[in-house]
Write a protein that binds this DNA or RNA. Structure first.
Lengths: 115, 115
DNA sequence: TTGTTACTTAACTCTATGCTTAACCAACAA
DNA sequence: TTGTTGGTTAAGCATAGAGTTAAGTAACAA
């Protein structure tokens, strides 16, 4: 685990860990927006907003391109589903395990014939 | 956004952002384990491992109880689905928007009767 | 060409995170 | 009762993260 560079999943969950950035994703899930549009709801300097956007872009959750002097940002839905997938896989594994445990207990209980 | 305390979702995504902690969730999705069992795969001190476990427990992703001198840790699947839910909601919203956009473009294109 | 808009870059501050070592404590085993 | 196991607590350190202000640049508008 030493000297490990951050993976996509690291960056993605890291990006989602901040409420400001989640609010931005929220906004962007309703459609693309410019940097200053995205900045408007927040009580912080523009550079701070841009740094959040860079975190989001680095993680692959959004992409952006600049035309003229305005940069337009949009969500990158495939990245979102990667994170979703990871969680779902773990939850599924856990549930399967519980099912097997349930089966086992059912079998073990049979001889007892409860009530 | 000033002076805001971290929410469940903050703590959860934060917890999932670390590869060590994701590996622990991975292990725990196969069943409960003691602290030292969980520590074994990692090349780090026990206190470090325990701090990771605290982060996971704080976020609600796992729970633990101590009997005798061994502490047993297990996954808390409901918490996992909260994170999953958040992602899914955003992705869904995005997809719906794309659908509407598609409909709009289809209508707009109709007069053109392409090819 | 002069001003304004929409960022962008740089430098700095402050706090949080991830790790370490050292010392401690309680449970069980001999 | 003495040693060992399985944590726990405390303190410290180094890096990363979230914010700031100040200054710069490129596009468009008058």
């Amino acid at each position: 685990m030493l000297n490990q560079q951050p993976t996509n999943l690291d960056l993605m969950f890291q990006a989602l860990a901040d409420p400001t950035r989640r609010a931005m994703i929220d906004r962007l899930s309703r459609g693309p927006a410019s940097v200053s549009e995205l900045a408007k709801p927040f009580d912080m300097s523009l550079p701070a907003v841009v740094q959040h956007l860079q975190a989001l872009e680095h993680s692959g959750l959004v992409s952006s391109q600049k035309v003229g002097r305005v940069r337009t940002v949009q969500i990158q839905p495939d990245a979102l589903s990667l994170a979703e997938q990871w969680i779902n896989d773990r939850r599924t594994m856990w549930v399967k395990r519980l099912d097997r445990l349930g089966d086992f207990l059912a079998e073990t209980d049979e001889p007892e014939t409860r009530t």
